[in-house]
């Protein structure tokens, strides 16, 4: 599924124009991105939490060459699915 397909679902089910649906889908993702970029978590109840986590610097190894390297500290985004989403996936399985 892609952004265009999500926009189509919004258009079909809610009746916003195709153009508006596409713009809002884009705006929603953009807003989440901006918030995460500012280091703030995004909590979407019923879906999940996007969290910004700080990773410490650590010693690593280039798996190709075997060289020791230092992996710098960095920030990463992690996603924690809500209980509701987890249950939804289980419900439809098997």
């Amino acid at each position: 599924m892609t952004k265009a397909e999500i926009a189509k679902i919004v258009h079909d089910r809610i009746g916003l124009s195709k153009k508006e649906s596409g713009q809002i889908v884009e705006a929603v993702l953009d807003e989440i991105k901006k918030t995460l970029e500012g280091g703030e978590d995004v909590k979407l109840s019923g879906f999940g939490h996007f969290m910004v986590r700080e990773k410490h610097a650590r010693r690593g190894r280039n798996p190709k060459t075997g060289d020791d390297i230092t992996i710098a500290s960095r920030k990463v985004v992690t996603f924690r699915a809500s209980q509701l989403l987890k249950e939804k996936l289980l419900g439809e399985d098997d």
Binding site: M1, T2, I9, V10, I14, I24, V28, F47, L89
Partner: peptide
């Protein structure tokens, strides 16, 4: 609209689809 977007993503995942 916001609810619908995340419902669509959840539905796709429940069907085993990937959402890119």
């Amino acid at each position: 609209v916001v609810n619908e977007i995340f419902r669509a993503i959840s539905d796709a995942l429940a069907k085993g689809d990937r959402v890119e």
